[in-house]
């Protein structure tokens, strides 16, 4: 059993929660870019979540979850001292951390959480780190302080202009390029539409762009093929070949369609339990 040692609510509409969980074996091995699969109890789905932070000494893993449906709402309502039944990881291939030169790390919405450890590691590897984080509006922008603390430069974009630039993260990226900055590599993590627009924007510019895909998964070990994506001309399994891929090669439209496969069933699962998220510690 894997105990939740800390809970912090990062936003309330949508509900985004940070949980620090005891999982020493995972914490000993995890690298930025990897993920875990969790199960709350016997009836639960296996839910993939990116590792947002880890503490090898304390033996903990930090995850950030956004409420999008039944399982994520249940996880978000977990209190300090409660337990996950299963917590598997680290899964997936770690990010390619090396000195690329100048890197831009883009996190959209919840995507700021998974991009955070990658950005930090890239900074530690000697890169000049420019970060772009965005959200629909200021009140659901997450991890701003954490990102500011590790970045040489931080650009904020909100759809409604309530903080930073009014617009999307791609507008932030445009602004950086307009200043004449030469970018050597980009990590872009967020909703699939966001990753697609970043990739479309950088493709003609020839800037290496890594995205982190989040298809529906079951086992996370390459056994079932649920997580398959088309990348270039090939079929890849995101759980073992990814989750990071060359954004210029990913078939985003297919990925979006595959994500919507269980829409009806998700609705059915939802009505069987009301979300009581939003309670608990700040």
């Amino acid at each position: 059993m894997y105990r939740v040692v800390k809970r912090r609510q990062l936003a309330s509409a949508p509900c985004i929660v940070l949980l620090e969980v005891e999982a020493p074996a995972v914490a000993a091995k995890v690298e930025p870019g990897q993920f875990v699969i969790v199960r709350m109890d016997e009836q639960s789905e296996r839910i993939p979540l990116t590792v947002m932070d880890f503490d090898r000494e304390k033996g903990t893993i930090t995850i950030v979850i956004q409420d999008v449906g039944y399982s994520s709402a249940m996880i978000n309502s977990m209190e300090e001292g409660s337990y996950f039944l299963d917590f598997v990881g680290p899964l997936g291939v770690p990010s390619e951390i090396e000195n690329h030169g100048t890197v831009v790390c883009i996190g959209g919405g919840l995507g700021v959480a998974p991009v955070y450890p990658i950005a930090r590691a890239l900074k530690e590897a000697g890169n000049k780190l420019i970060s772009v984080i965005g959200a629909r509006s200021a009140d659901i922008l997450i991890l701003e302080e954490e990102m500011a603390a590790i970045s040489d430069e931080l650009v904020i974009a909100t759809d409604d202009g309530s903080k930073g630039i009014k617009g999307f993260v791609t507008n932030g990226l445009e602004q950086i390029l307009a200043q004449g900055t030469k970018i050597d590599a980009i990590w872009a993590i967020g909703p699939v539409v966001m990753m697609r627009s970043v990739a479309n924007f950088t493709r003609p510019l020839g800037i290496k762009t890594i995205v982190s895909m989040n298809p529906i998964m079951v086992d996370g070990t390459g056994m079932c093929g649920a997580c398959r994506l088309t990348v270039g001309d090939e079929t890849k399994f995101a759980c073992v070949d990814g989750p990071e891929f060359d954004g210029h090669l990913v078939d985003f439209d297919l990925a979006m369609k595959r994500l919507s496969f269980y829409k009806d069933e998700e609705e059915r699962a939802k009505i069987s339990k009301d979300c009581d998220c939003g309670k608990g510690a700040q």
Binding site: Q43, E45, Y70
Partner: peptide
Amino acid sequence: TRTNLMKGYRFPEYKTP
């Protein structure tokens, strides 16, 4: 796997569709 391991045939009691 969805059906056996995750007991999808007992959805929505078991949450894997």
